[in-house]
Nucleic acid binder design. Structure first.
Lengths: 330, 330
DNA sequence: CTGTTAGCGCGTTCAT
DNA sequence: ATGAACGCGCTAACAG
């Protein structure tokens, strides 16, 4: 591999001029510029980024901590982040943490050792979270309430309340809930909204109507079986995400239940395929790509040392009524 | 942030000793080692990896080119790669290429500029592929036949032949095929195996029995509708991956067809949920994690300059018969 | 076992 | 507009 010196020698100028030609072309004469580019082409010169980064004390890289790269919602958030990062000339390192704090720690170490300039965490904050840490510029892209570091989020409780209110307004009184893991912050926030809506309507909360899932399709399917076995089955189900809702629909239909005639179901996230499910799913659209973009912008503000940065952004959601919800059989 | 010099000053030794304490502790006295570690702790010293990498001319990073990070098969291959990389102390950069060669090019540039030491490509090779390139150490983890650079793969044709032979041995003569995109190398290899099996059994290949999909669940569903509309419907279907098979099963069942009584179906990949599908899917298990591990090992051999490295590994598959295939109605 | 010295490739002064 | 010189933080070679 040729270095900047080889190019300088080829052109017959100093390395400083070559460097300038690349970083500040306006400070170099047209003539030199031309010859330098010719030499670069001829020698197949590629600046050694390791050297540049070392010199500039910036890796031009951010890390995204993703609990599950196969999750469609996360993929969309990642897209948003990548859009912004690319326009800033930053690389994006995807940290596939698989919900392991050990693996998370390793990725965070990349920032401590300067291999990356900042972190975007997609896992909502909880006590056992690695972040925040000293020396680590970080932002949460899928925040929950009371995240103790800069975060972008939606109002989960409010959104869950809207869904539940919708079901109540259709006339449902027994509303099943497919939750995420009990200690997941999003579960907690959304459960809060679910309870709020029930309370407002004077319906008592019934723990027997809650089936715990883990946000995967299969856990939704299992949850549906829980409801099917009940003697006094709910007439509607609110699933804390679309994947579980789709799993549940599969389970319910397999047992011969018609949706929404026999049982209504609503989800959360608005995945791409939720509008193609059978029937199309009533759900809450999270601005997933926007969450990614906003969090990336926020992170770059912090990296650039802008202290004025607001440290919480709550983005609006969109409640979408499709064909999976209807009034209960009278 | 403190540097190696601060630590040396604190301890009262030279920077070289501190450096050795970290990289070659056996060359440093116990006493010094102890004081150095104390100083590191006190000063919260973290070696600047940018500097190390620059000095060592190694980023200790490999890039995985992934066409679709939300694909379950790829996630598993990635796991395998990460296992090996971690044990080698390498970082893994996930290049989410979304099938865009523009994005692929950007990630490959990371190697050209030394920010990464090698590439593992998950997309099978085809003419328009960016790799191989000069100065870029690369390996393909999901190879097809005639990949022009080091690759790890399964024998796609042979596996497809096995599946088709199984269906033929059950007594099927009209065997539908749900293929991937026509120009996808895996489609080509698997189609070859399908045709071989038919030829061996003296069954003529009928293009009308081939429905083109794109490896997504939805394309499998669409394909099923194609078969349902046929007047002389196949009694069995071979789908080139499990996702399409599951989509097709959904479509067939929706039209009241029973699987396998009315129609048999076999897939390819053995996704985690294929054993839970209804009915459990007959399929070919790809050693996805092994493909990842083997390709990573191969890449590290190349990075370490081992020229003796074999440049193609064909890993065995496992054909798994479950309940989605049975003899045709007589 | 330890210190001294030199230099990796680049960008940025400060001269000219 | 250009060049000479320096140094970023670290490690390897050599000498002691």
């Amino acid at each position: 591999m040729s270095t900047i010196r080889d190019v300088a020698k080829e052109v017959g100028c100093s390395t400083a001029t070559v460097s300038r030609a690349l970083s500040h072309p306006e400070k170099v004469s047209k003539a030199s510029l031309k010859r330098i580019h010719a030499a670069i082409e001829k020698l197949q010169y590629r600046p050694n980024m390791l050297s540049q980064q070392f010199r500039n004390k910036q890796a031009n890289t951010i890390v995204i901590l993703v609990p599950d790269i196969a999750n469609l919602f996360f993929s969309t958030v990642i897209s948003g982040i990548e859009n912004v990062a690319q326009s800033k000339g930053f690389n994006v390192l995807l940290g596939d943490t698989r919900d392991s704090s050990e693996r998370e720690k390793n990725f965070i170490k990349l920032v401590e050792t300067k291999q990356a300039d900042g972190v975007i965490q997609l896992r909502p904050y909880s006590k056992n979270s690695m972040l925040p840490k000293k020396f680590v510029t970080a932002v949460n892209a899928c925040g929950c309430e009371d995240t103790p570091y800069p975060a972008v989020r939606i109002d989960n409780a409010d959104a869950a309340r809207q869904v539940t209110e919708h079901l109540i307004s259709l006339g449902h009184k027994k509303i099943g809930l497919i939750s995420g893991l009990t200690d997941n912050p999003h579960t907690i926030d959304r459960l809060k909204g679910y309870k709020q809506a029930l309370a407002q309507a004077g319906i008592e909360f019934d723990p027997a109507l809650v089936a715990e899932g883990d946000f995967t399709l299969w856990s939704g399917l299992n949850a549906s079986e829980h409801f099917i076995r009940m003697t006094d089955r709910p007439t509607a189900i609110f699933s804390m995400n679309d994947e579980m809702a789709i799993g549940a629909m599969k389970g319910l239909k397999a047992k011969g239940l018609k949706i929404p005639e026999d049982i209504s179901i609503a989800g959360f996230d608005d995945l791409e395929f939720s509008k193609y499910s059978d029937p199309p799913l009533t759900t809450v659209a999270q601005p997933a790509e926007k969450l990614g973009e906003k969090s990336a912008e926020l992170l770059f503000q912090l990296i650039d040392g802008e202290t004025s940065a607001q440290n919480e952004y709550v983005l609006p959601v969109e409640f979408i009524i499709r064909q999976s919800t209807a009034p209960p059989r009278s």
